Amino acid sequence: MLYVYAITADCAAGASSLLPEDGILPGVAVQHFAAGPLGAVASAVPDSVFGKEALQAQLNDADWTRARILDHQRVVSSLLPVATVLPLKFCSLFAGEASLADALATQREVLEATVARLRGAREWGVKLFFESPTRPVRTAEPVGAGSGLAFFRRKKEEQEFRAAAEAALDNCVAASHRRLAAHARAAVANPLQPPELHGHAGTMGLNGAYLVAAETEAAWRACLLELETAYAAVGARYVLTGPWAAYNFTGGGLV
């Protein structure tokens, strides 16, 4: 059984010698399988771990699954400097070399088109967070006959403040994604993550991924710096991640 990490093209000379020693499991070798202009990076894995029933039991172990996901990402990341990489999803398994070769041949046109779209570009992530906006300081109002009216006035001001703050944040999110996407080959706004997953202070407003070509990367990063300055007043904080293999732009990969 083969565990396949990624489809590759444009491999640099000696790229196979740069593959990590350990793959999806400790002691499991990583190999490159050539198939014309395309190739695949994979490991031979035991059925006792990755067979259908055995794998389901393993995936129920959160610590094991987390470690294997990190191993998968580690192997894929090692390929980025030496090849155009079409990363496959976690636990992409094939019966053997013949099955893998057949899949590569059957889907060659789709895979080559995807590789062409990814060639010369890297994926970057931008997570946008907002701290709670600061309310304007108000002077204390005297308690008296007009205190009821003052109460309703304060409630209205509070509602107007919240509405204005929400509008400012919505505008920041939309403008940020639009401007970053303008400097990218492709862009996607992924679902927002809960705090226990993203691990940052504040509320997430954008979880963007951007496929950025090498020749526009400097302009894209300059745009990000401009956004940080422009929206600092509304409590925006941008977190840059990457570069990553283009997980968000593979179009499904190999099936």
Rank of each mutant, 00 (worst) to 15 (best):
M204L: 05
G205T: 06
G205F: 01
L206C: 13
N207G: 09
N207Q: 11
G208N: 13
G208A: 15
A209H: 08
Y210D: 02
L211S: 15
L211P: 14
V212T: 11
V212A: 14
V212C: 07
A213T: 02
A214N: 05
A214H: 00
A214Q: 13
E215T: 10
E215K: 09
T216A: 10
T216K: 06
T216W: 00
T216I: 03
E217S: 09
A218F: 04
A218H: 12
A219Q: 12
A219P: 07
A222Q: 07
A222P: 14
C223K: 07
L224P: 06
L225D: 14
E226C: 15
E226Y: 11
L227H: 08
L227T: 13
E228I: 07
E228D: 13
E228R: 15
E228P: 07
T229S: 14
A230D: 04
Y231A: 02
A232D: 01
A232R: 05
A232V: 00
A232I: 03
A233N: 00
A233Y: 00
V234M: 14
V234G: 15
G235E: 05
G235F: 04
G235L: 00
A236D: 09
A236F: 00
A236C: 12
R237M: 00
R237N: 08
Y238K: 08
V239S: 11
V239M: 01
L240T: 02
T241Q: 14
T241Y: 03
T241F: 13
P243M: 05
P243Q: 05
W244M: 02
A245L: 11
A245F: 02
A245Y: 06
A245I: 14
A245N: 14
A246L: 00
Y247V: 11
Y247H: 12
Y247W: 03
N248Q: 12
N248V: 04
T250W: 02
T250Q: 05
G251L: 03
G251Y: 01
G251W: 00
G251V: 04
G252F: 02
G253D: 06
G253L: 08
G253Q: 13
G253E: 05
G253I: 14
